[in-house]
Nucleic acid binder design. Structure first.
Length: 799
RNA sequence: GCCCGGGUGGUGGAAUGGUAUACACGCAGGACUUAAAAUCCUGUGACGGUAACGUCUUGUGGGUUCGAGUCCCACCCCGGGCACCA
C-alpha cells in the first residue's frame, strides 16, 4: 500500500514552485490585478513561531484561490528589520546588526518556504537596505519641505531602559510598549510630524474603506475629535485673558473656578506675577517630578494650589479663582479647565478638596436634587437649565447652541475642534534605524540633505550602545556628524537621531509594486496598475500605530503628487485582522515561558500541509486561539484519507450522491474562504471526505480534479502530488435536491422528521403529517389553532 | 468610567429566527495483533428508562414570537482598546 509521505512530496513541489517562478506577479497582464498583503514581520532571532504563520497561511489560501479565479495576484513578503532586539543582540555579541539581520531573514525565509507559502520572492524588500531607506529618507525630506516635519523642545515619553524617546502610541499604561519599563517625562528637542493636520481626513475617509467596525471605532477613538468652544475670560485687574476649551458651554453659568495644568503655557508665562508664586512653583516642581503613571495611579485624588489670580465670567460677572492642578493636562486644549463642579465629577472632586462653591445649573427629567449630576451621563437624555439667566428652562442641547452663538457674537470666544491625537514624535536615540536626513547649519538653520546625496547611510561603528544622556550613538562619530551645509557650504552638523521603526513600514506596500526602482519610490505606471492594496491583513495591535501612520503617510504622498491621483486617497481597500495563537492552556506564547511551538518541528513531524490545515481549522481566523498539539492529528488523518481515496477510489463515473455532495462542498468552501471562515470550509471538506470514504463507488477523474482544486489552497503540496492539473476554480450549481427532510413540530417542539418530495405545498404536507402515529398523540383532545408552514423545511402545528 | 468583542459538551468549536451540540480532539467499548502502536467499526450533552421514548440544557433573570443560542430589556462574568481628553 502506498504511504502518504509529506516530507518527500513537499520538498519536491516547493523546489518546482520556487525555481519556476509561478508565484511571480507580472506588472501588466490581461488578467485583473489583485494585491493581497499581510504585514511584514520583524525578523527576530527566534524565528517564526506557529502563531506568526497563521495569517500568512490564511492569506495564502486566498492568494491561491484568486490565482485560480483568473487574477494576476501580487502576494509579496519582506522584512521590517530595523529595531531594538537586533540592536541589543548586536551590542551583546558585538556583531553588526546588518549581519544579524541577514542571518535572521534567511532563517525566516527558509521557514516560510517550508510552509509552501506562495510569496513572490522576486519582490522581497528589506527596510534596512540602503536602497530601500533612501526612499524612507526621501519621504522625510518631503515632509520637511511641506512644513509637516518640525523640531521642537517637548516633554517626551522617555524609556529609561531602552534609553529612547517613545511616541504616545508606544506607551501602554504608562509603560514602554516593548520592555514594560515605567516611562518618564523628559524634555528633549525632537522631530515631530504633523499627523494632527490629517486628523479629520483620517476619520472621514474611513467611510470609504472596508475595515471591520472595531478597527474604525478604535481609530476614531484614538484620534478623539471633540467639538467645542474656546472661551476667553478676562483676568481681574489685568489686561490678560485666559482661554479655556469646553464642549459644554451650556453649563457655564455654573462655573465657579478655573484650573490650569502645571506643565502648561499659562503657568510658564505668568508664574512670576502670581501673588502665590512660591506655592505654585513648589507645586509645579513636585508634580512634574512624578512619573505620569504614579500621578494617575494615586487615584482620582485631586490636588492643587491657588495662583491668587481671578478670572471674570462674562456671562454673570462672577469672580472665579484660578488654581494650578495636576489633573489638568498641559497638552490638551488650552491646558486649562473651567470648573463646573455641579456637573462634572472631576470638577466636583476638585471643588470638594479645595472647598469651592458648587452650583447646579441642569436638572434631569427626574428632577434630582443631589449635589452633582455628571452632565456626560445626562447628555443622551434630557436636561433643563436652571440658575442660568437667559438659558433657564431651555433643554441642554438647545442651550448649548444658543450660548455658543451668544459667546461668539459677543467676541468672548470662538468655536474650535480639539483632538486627542498628538503630533508624532519621530526621533529615536538609537543606531539601528534610518538616519534622519537633516543638517543643522548655524547660519541657515535646518537644511535637508540634497536628494542626490541620499541615502544618508548608517556609518560603520564599533559601539552601538545608546547613551544615558539620551544622545544617539551616532553623535559620537565625528566623521558622520561634521559635514558641510548644502546651502552655504559652511561647517554644519548632521542630525544624529534615527527614525522610529514605523518609518520603514509607512510606505512598504508601495515598494512591492516596483522594488528595484532607483529613480523614485515606485514607478507611476506600476503604482497605477497595482494600487490600492485590495486586501490587507494584520494584527489588531497595529490599529492605532502602523495602520494609522501608513494611512496618513499615504495621504500625504498622494497630496504632494508623489502618487498618481487615480489610485485614490486610501492605501487599503479592505482590512481584516487575525487572532493571536496562544500556547496550550491559553497563556501567551513566549520564549521566556518556554512554550513556543516552532513550525519547523510540526512540519518535520506531520508535514506542512497538515500544519496549514490545522492552523486554518483550529478556530475562527480573527479569534484568539490556544494551540493544541493533540488536535493536529485530526488534520493529518484528514489528508491521509484523501491520499488513500485519490489513489484507490477513482471510478469511471461518480455516484449521484457524491456528485451532489461535492457540489455542496464547493459552494461552502468557495463562500467560506471569502469570509475567512477557513475552519468551516475545512469541516465541510472533512464531511465530504467521510462520505466519499464510506461510499461504494467513489469519484470520477473530473470530480476528483474539482475536489483537489478546492483542497489545494489549504494543502497545495498534496493536491499537486495527487495530480491536480486544473487551474480554474470550480463553479457550483444551485441544485434543489429531490427529497427534503421535513421538520414536524407541535407548539414549536420537534416531534418528528419526515423525508418527503421537495416542493410540496402546505396542504399536501398536512395530509402526510397530521395522522402519523408519532404526531397524532400530540394532537389528541386538542384544538389545532394554527399551522405554520415553511417550504421544504418545517411545519409547526399550534394547538 | 467610556468604546468594542465574547460567554454553547470533557476540549477547540458549528448553527440566513426554524433538527442546538456539525467538524475535530479526547474518552469508552469492539475488530485486527502473541502484544503494542497505527488503522477500522460503534458509542459519547445531562437526567429517567432494558428499550421505544420522555424531560431538561447555549452565563443569569425577564420579554417579543407559532418557534429564541440567534431579536429586545436588565444583570453577572471574561477578553481587547482608551482613560483625569475638559
Amino acid at each position: 500500500m502506498i504511504k502518504y509521505n509529506p516530507a518527500k512530496i513537499e520538498k519536491k513541489w516547493q523546489k518546482r514552485w520556487f525555481t519556476s517562478g509561478v508565484f511571480e506577479a507580472k506588472n501588466s497582464s490581461k488578467k485583473p490585478k489583485y494585491y493581497l498583503l499581510d504585514e511584514f514581520p520583524y525578523p527576530s532571532g527566534d524565528g517564526l513561531h506557529v502563531g506568526h504563520c497563521r495569517p500568512y497561511i490564511g492569506l495564502d489560501v486566498i492568494a491561491r484561490k484568486r490565482r485560480m479565479q483568473g487574477f494576476n495576484v501580487l502576494y509579496p513578503m519582506g522584512w521590517d528589520a530595523f529595531g531594538l532586539p537586533t540592536e541589543n543582540y548586536a551590542i551583546k555579541k558585538g556583531v553588526h546588526p546588518a549581519i544579524v539581520t541577514k542571518k535572521n531573514t534567511a532563517n525566516f525565509k527558509k521557514q516560510m518556504k517550508n510552509l509552501g507559502l506562495s510569496f513572490d520572492w522576486s519582490r522581497e524588500i528589506n527596510t534596512t537596505d540602503p536602497k530601500y531607506y533612501t526612499w524612507t529618507q526621501w519621504i522625510f525630506i518631503k515632509l520637511f519641505e511641506a512644513g509637516m516635519a518640525y523640531k521642537d523642545k517637548i516633554n517626551i515619553n522617555w524609556c529609561p531602559k531602552d534609553k529612547t524617546g517613545l511616541a504616545n502610541e508606544e506607551v501602554i499604561n504608562g509603560c514602554c510598549e516593548r520592555c514594560g519599563t515605567k516611562v518618564e517625562k523628559r524634555e528633549k528637542s525632537q522631530w515631530l510630524i504633523k499627523i494632527t493636520k490629517y486628523a479629520d481626513r483620517l476619520i472621514e475617509d474611513l467611510s470609504n474603506v472596508d475595515y471591520p467596525a472595531r478597527v474604525k471605532d478604535q481609530q476614531i477613538n484614538w484620534i478623539g475629535r471633540s467639538e467645542g468652544i474656546n472661551i476667553d475670560y478676562q483676568i481681574e485687574n489685568s489686561k490678560k485673558v485666559i482661554s479655556v476649551f469646553t464642549t459644554r458651554p451650556d453649563t457655564n453659568f455654573g462655573a465657579t473656578f478655573l484650573v490650569v495644568a502645571p506643565d502648561g503655557k499659562f503657568v510658564k508665562e505668568n508664574v512670576e506675577e502670581f501673588p502665590e508664586k512660591e506655592k505654585v512653583r513648589a507645586y509645579v516642581k513636585e508634580s512634574l517630578a512624578k512619573p505620569e503613571i504614579d500621578r494617575t495611579a494615586e487615584g482620582k485624588k485631586k490636588t492643587g494650589v491657588p495662583t491668587g489670580w481671578y478670572a471674570i465670567n462674562n456671562l454673570n460677572g462672577k469672580k472665579m479663582p484660578i488654581y494650578v492642578g495636576d489633573f489638568v493636562l498641559g497638552q490638551f486644549g488650552t491646558g486649562c479647565v473651567v470648573g463646573v463642579p455641579g456637573h462634572d465629577v472631576r470638577d466636583f472632586e476638585f471643588a470638594k478638596a479645595m472647598g469651592l462653591e458648587i452650583i447646579r445649573v441642569v436638572v434631569g427629567p427626574d428632577g434630582d436634587k443631589s449635589e452633582i449630576t455628571d452632565v456626560k451621563q445626562v447628555q443622551e437624555e434630557k436636561g433643563t437649565m436652571i440658575n442660568s439667566g437667559f438659558l433657564d428652562g431651555r433643554d441642554i442641547h438647545e442651550a448649548t447652541k444658543v450660548i455658543m452663538d451668544h459667546i461668539v457674537e459677543k467676541g468672548w470666544g470662538k468655536k474650535i475642534v480639539n483632538y486627542k491625537l498628538r503630533d508624532w514624535v519621530f526621533s529615536r536615540q538609537h543606531y539601528w534605524g534610518e538616519p534622519i536626513p537633516m543638517i543643522y547649519c548655524a547660519a541657515c538653520g535646518w537644511v535637508t540633505v540634497p536628494e542626490k546625496d541620499l541615502p544618508v547611510a548608517l556609518p560603520k561603528v564599533t559601539k552601538y550602545q545608546p547613551t544615558d544622556d539620551g544622545e544617539s550613538p551616532l553623535s559620537a562619530i565625528e566623521k558622520f556628524v561634521n559635514t558641510k551645509c548644502p546651502k552655504c557650504g559652511g561647517a554644519a552638523k548632521r542630525e544624529t537621531d534615527t527614525m522610529p521603526n514605523w518609518a520603514g513600514s509607512n510606505w512598504y506596500f508601495l515598494r512591492y509594486t516596483d522594488p528595484k526602482n532607483n529613480k523614485s519610490l515606485a514607478d507611476e505606471k506600476v503604482l497605477k496598475y497595482w494600487m490600492p492594496v485590495d486586501w490587507y491583513n494584520g494584527g489588531m495591535e497595529h490599529t492605532t500605530l502602523h495602520l494609522l501612520y501608513s494611512r496618513f503617510i499615504f495621504k500625504f504622498l498622494w497630496d504632494i503628487g508623489a502618487l498618481p491621483k487615480e489610485i485614490g486617497n486610501e492605501p487599503y481597500k479592505k482590512r481584516t485582522s487575525h487572532g493571536i495563537v496562544l500556547a496550550e492552556g491559553g497563556v501567551k506564547m513566549s520564549k521566556s515561558k518556554g512554550n513556543v511551538i516552532n513550525p519547523d518541528d510540526v512540519v518535520k513531524e506531520y508535514g506542512a500541509d497538515t500544519l496549514r490545515v490545522y492552523e486554518m481549522f483550529m478556530g475562527p481566523f480573527e479569534q484568539m486561539i490556544p494551540w493544541d498539539t493533540k488536535g493536529i492529528v485530526g488534520a493529518r488523518r484528514f489528508l491521509e484519507k484523501i491520499y488513500i481515496l485519490a489513489n484507490k477510489k477513482v471510478a469511471t463515473k461518480s455516484s449521484q450522491d457524491l456528485a451532489l455532495a461535492l457540489n455542496k462542498t464547493i459552494k461552502k468552501v468557495s463562500e467560506d474562504i471569502e469570509l475567512m471562515k477557513f475552519n468551516t470550509a475545512i469541516s465541510a471538506m472533512m464531511s465530504f471526505v467521510n462520505e466519499w470514504y464510506s461510499s461504494e463507488t467513489g469519484l470520477d477523474k473530473k470530480d476528483l480534479q474539482k475536489f483537489l482544486t478546492i483542497l489545494s489552497p489549504f494543502a497545495p503540496h498534496l493536491a499537486a502530488e495527487l495530480g491536480l492539473k486544473e487551474r480554474t476554480w470550480p463553479t457550483y450549481a444551485e441544485i434543489q435536491e429531490a427529497t427534503v427532510m421535513m421538520i414536524v413540530s407541535v407548539n414549536g417542539k420537534v416531534r418528528d422528521k419526515m423525508e418527503m418530495k421537495s416542493g410540496l405545498d402546505q396542504s399536501q404536507v398536512e395530509g402526510l403529517v397530521l395522522h402519523t402515529p408519532k404526531i397524532k398523540p400530540w394532537l389528541e383532545g386538542k384544538q389545532v389553532k394554527k399551522i405554520i408552514f415553511v417550504l421544504n423545511k418545517l411545519i409547526n402545528i399550534v394547538v
